[in-house]
Design a protein around this nucleic acid. Structure first.
Length: 184
DNA sequence: GCCACGATAGTG
DNA sequence: ACTATCGTGGCG
């Protein structure tokens, strides 16, 4: 294991699917807690019928159209939070949903499986919406510790059956065999 | 205003 | 498979 290098804006200012794939194995750092990302999903711009950005640069998803490397947090089903990382250049919509991670601080890896449980485990709520993940002083940032996935699994996204043809797009990325990857 | 519906998770 | 629970977006 080598030194942690914080991810900079240029990492996020790229096509969303590439960022989603490259976030696998990166480390979320939250108040000294560390968790390795094992599952992500890419949500594209206005034409992606599964993306909140389909409503345009208004309302809760306006952050998706802004600066790369910001956090987008929203509430689903009235009770669970979901955290996303904003991608693409400022002015272009895109975000990566973080769906699962494993905590690295205990003797055993702590499972944070599913977007709701990941947010719960890290204490992330809408208070953290729009937080700058590229600022180490933010209380939440992303780092590269040198980990490189041997393999990456790709499937369609979870829970977007309503999105017509976009439901079938292969925009979910995960580390095959990792026990913290969410089943459903 | 009002209403339908989730980028989920826990229980039966 | 059922449902808790509430913010958002669509519509009028």
């Amino acid at each position: 294991m080598q030194a942690m290098k914080i991810l900079t804006p240029d990492f996020f200012a790229r096509p969303t699917a590439a960022v989603a794939r490259d976030l696998l194995g990166k480390v979320l750092v939250r108040r000294g807690l560390r968790a390795r990302i094992v599952e992500t999903e890419a949500y594209l711009g206005a034409r992606d019928r599964a993306s909140h950005a389909r409503f345009g640069p208004r309302g809760r998803s306006s952050v998706m159209f802004g600066q790369p490397g910001r956090l987008y947090v929203y509430l689903v089903y009235g009770m669970h939070h979901c955290m996303n990382v904003v991608t693409e250049e400022d002015g272009t919509a895109g975000a990566v949903l973080l769906r699962a991670a494993e905590g690295l601080d205990g003797a055993e890896p702590k499972t944070l499986s599913g977007p709701g449980r990941l947010c719960r485990g890290l204490g992330v709520t809408r208070r953290e919406n729009r937080l700058d993940l590229t600022d180490a002083g933010s209380g939440l940032f992303l780092a590269d510790d040198g980990f490189r996935p041997a393999r990456v699994g790709v499937t369609s996204r979870i829970g977007v059956a309503y999105a017509g043809p976009w439901a079938r797009r292969r925009l979910r990325f995960y580390l095959p065999g990792n026990p913290s990857v969410s089943g459903a």
